[in-house]
Every structure is written in structure tokens, then in C-alpha cells.
Computed example of a mutant assay.
Amino acid sequence: MADIEDRVAIVTGASGGIGAAVVRRLTQDGVAVVVHYGGNAERARALADEVTDAGGRAIVAGADVADEEEMAAVFDAAAHAFGGVDVVVHTAGIMPLSPVAQTDLETFDRVMHTNVRGTFVTDRLAAQRVRDGGAIINLSTSVTRLQLPGYGAYAASKGAVEAMTLILARELRGRDITVNAIAPGPTATPLFFEGKSPELVQQIASGNPMQRLGTPEDIAETVAFLAGPGRWINGQVLYANGGAA
């Protein structure tokens, strides 16, 4: 793989909590980053400005992750600005919560469109365009194992993400490209806190031996490991959840 300061990463969903932390962490290692956003252009531009003001390299690119032409343009932007792509970190996703019995099909279809089709589109382009020796990192969730009520549609979509990840790792045999998924536990992002009482947040936080929520920075450290020195980890789902069962 190229020296770390020569690497180029696309981070999808970079205007969100985990995505933004990933951008900051990768640029600390000297990686040039394409800050992708789906809806919040202002936040993405502010993050890119933060990186460049600190001496890093970053550009902004907007796209619907489920639209192949729009996402192809993101990869084109990376190639034009930085010469190619070595790392793709796919954090973009949505998480509407409700019991299966109360989840309308429109919501279910929207989750599958963004989380499953969006991952397939992004991974398909990554498989075609990431340079040999690179890394593809998807975001799953520990809820696929924790079976928390209310997460049926979301967990189902992330189960599909895990399946695609593990198969793609085997399909890229011979190119020295690692493909892994990170499955965070409950993480202190604005999306996580939506609709939760302080009591519920505390209950969830106490559900692992560390007795706290994860932070976006916790997940970003795991990403940086897989994007950098973790070259012997491939075709795996890493549970970054503080030891939750």
C-alpha cells in the first residue's frame, strides 16, 4: 500500500458524527480526504475548511449514495483532485426506529434504498476504482447481534451490509485490497440521541462493561487502523462496542 501521506480516502456521510470524526482522524495521518455529504453541504464544507486550515488536504463532494452516476462523480472528483482512491469509508446511512409491526413499508423501503442499495453502489464503485493495496470499510451495527426492539428494519439493512462486505473481500482476491465492516455499539452522535430520554440513554450506556456510550472518535480510531496498519485483517466484522454482548 502507498505510504500513508500518499493515500486518498473517500468518506461517505462525512457531515455526520462518525463520518466527521473519521475525516479528522484520517487527515491526522496525512491522508487526503473527499468529504462526501448527502444533504448537509454547509457542514461538509465547514469540515473541509477545518482540515485545510490545519494544513491537510480535503475537498467536498455531494451525492445520493444510492445513485450510481452521482457517486461515480465523487470518485471522479477524488481522481481529479488527488490522482486516485486508496480508501473508501462508507458511513452514510439512515436509522428510523419503530417496532416491526408499526413500521410502514415506505419507511422500510427508504432504509433499504439508502443503507443497502447505497452500500452496494458505493462498494461496486470502490471495487472497480480503489487502487491495489487499498481498503474498503463499511459501517454495520452491533444491533445485528444485540437484537434490540425497534431496530428491525435498520438491523436487517446492516445484515445485508455485512453479507456484501464479506463476499466482496473474497471477490477481490489477488489485489491486496482489504474489505471489512465495523459494527459500532451505541455511539454518542446526534442521530443516537434523537427521541431518547436521559434515563434511556443511561440504561443503554450501562449495557456494556465499559459503562459508557462509544464516541465517534472511538469508531474513527478503528477506521484508521483498518485504513492503515491493519493489513492482515480482511473479510471481517469488527465489533467496536465496549464489550456489549
Results as ranks from 00 to 15, higher is better:
residue 1 M to H: 13
residue 8 V to M: 11
residue 10 I to Y: 08
residue 14 A to R: 08
residue 15 S to W: 07
residue 16 G to Q: 06
residue 21 A to N: 11
residue 23 V to S: 12
residue 32 A to E: 03
residue 33 V to M: 09
residue 36 H to I: 08
residue 38 G to N: 13
residue 38 G to R: 06
residue 48 A to D: 04
residue 50 E to I: 03
residue 51 V to L: 07
residue 52 T to Q: 12
residue 61 A to N: 03
residue 63 A to W: 01
residue 63 A to F: 07
residue 64 D to E: 13
residue 64 D to A: 13
residue 70 E to M: 11
residue 70 E to T: 05
residue 70 E to W: 02
residue 73 A to Q: 13
residue 77 A to Q: 12
residue 85 V to G: 04
residue 91 T to N: 14
residue 95 M to P: 02
residue 96 P to V: 10
residue 100 V to L: 15
residue 105 L to F: 13
residue 106 E to S: 13
residue 116 V to Y: 00
residue 118 G to P: 03
residue 127 A to R: 08
residue 137 I to A: 13
residue 149 P to Q: 07
residue 153 A to E: 01
residue 159 G to Y: 01
residue 162 E to W: 00
residue 163 A to I: 10
residue 168 L to R: 02
residue 169 A to D: 01
residue 171 E to M: 04
residue 172 L to N: 03
residue 179 V to G: 05
residue 185 G to Q: 02
residue 191 L to R: 14
residue 194 E to N: 09
residue 199 E to W: 05
residue 203 Q to N: 11
residue 204 I to L: 12
residue 204 I to P: 02
residue 205 A to F: 11
residue 217 E to K: 11
residue 219 I to E: 03
residue 220 A to P: 02
residue 220 A to H: 01
residue 222 T to W: 04
residue 223 V to M: 01
residue 231 R to M: 03
residue 233 I to L: 14
residue 237 V to A: 07
residue 245 A to G: 11
